[in-house]
Amino acid sequence: DTFIGAIYAHTPVIGSRETGKIITREQALEAVKPNLAVYEEQTRIAKSQNADIIVFPEYGLYGFGTTRDSVVPYMEYIPDPQSESWNPCLDPRQSKPTDNVILKTLSCIAKNSSIYLVANLGDYQYCEPAQDPECPDDKRYQYNTNVVFDPQGALIARYHKQKLFMSEIVRYDVPTSPEYITFNTPFGKFGTFVCFDILFKEPAVDLVTEYKVNHILFPTAWMNVYPFFSAVSFHSAWAYGMGVNFLSANIHRPRNRNVGSGVYGYNGIKEYTMDHEAPNGELKLATLESRPSPKTIQHTKLENLGNTSREFVSDLFGDKFNFVSLKEYEGTISVCHNAVCCSATYKRTGNSHNELYAIGAFDGLHTKEGTYYLQICTLLKCATDEPESCGSKVTDSKTIFEHFTLKGNFSTQHIFPMVVLDKAEPSINDWEYSDGPTLSSN
């Protein structure tokens, strides 16, 4: 009824590569080799601790900093496992137009440790403009791709990223339609997608609601933005909100704010790592239920959330939230923005009144690094005692809340609850989320 999931927060070894410089295939394989060695070692360690499946990060094998042309030597042609069976370790045939050294190595790592293995690399698909009007001028599609190998080393899943993040568009192509990639194991049904895909419905949400997967495999290269877009908080909130287990492997590059990986259960965080000081990543394992049965929360629309006049407006990651500050030690306050109204009932301890807190509401189209519609209710600490700092990055707090309850009248059923504590640590299983929707804690 259970299995052990593992993630490795890998720091890609990329050497002194120059951005945009085109290297040979041999040089690319030399560059990838130390990363594959880490994958092999960590897989062996995970298996020694009885892991059934291990996930490695997006861009884990060769890092960023490539262009459409300079990423080519790192890529391999990845056949569609839905149309042909292939075990690269047992059958390392040449797959034109590329060799398959990386796929073979990954396959053998999975086979030698008898474990499901998930990795991310570039897929090179040849095309002919005469037969395919969509075929790019350079006669190839390039995809940001997740691959999954079974414990025998067979390639069983291939997923092409649908929602490329900003400058990724110069490197990779977008599939013509979202791919819904699932596979069954003795411990449940899995789906997979990549990084920025998590913000959108297709395929992320539909994998859960339409394809009924139990678990998500999530290679990512996530750059933390506080307060909401911090990797562990955001990804675990999605797992909780969707009612699935979620294995998230982020690359570990603290200088670039790429920190935060974990194994998240449908009912709370199981294990996570977000050490900003550690030079290298970390392996994390946790036992998960094979077939989660999350409680169903009906989001009835709330009425009468009280006084709704805004006090001030402040920017939170490009969005203008309406805020009302917490002036008393305890009380009930509310704020609205467009159709969303939020209400908070709270009580602080007496010695923590000098830090500014506010409740905020946002209902609108977010457009900063992508375009997607948000409805948010939040109770947060402001960065300073100035109102315009509310929504800016802050990671430290001294204020103890004896209790709080946050309610909102959302128009959507897709709500992801999160609670973040001092030092930006996610809170684990010490809050409740219930009908309303209502987020509360003592």
Binding site: Y226, L379, M418, L421
Partner: peptide, 29 residues
């Protein structure tokens, strides 16, 4: 109960149907 000072509590809602109403921003670099 919470074991540490609170930094942020949030309910982060995504209204996917509204994405389609507004459409996706053209892809840029």
């Amino acid at each position: 109960s919470l074991q540490k000072p609170l930094l942020t509590a949030a309910m982060f809602g995504r209204w996917y149907e509204m994405d389609q109403l507004f459409g996706q921003r053209p892809k840029t670099t």
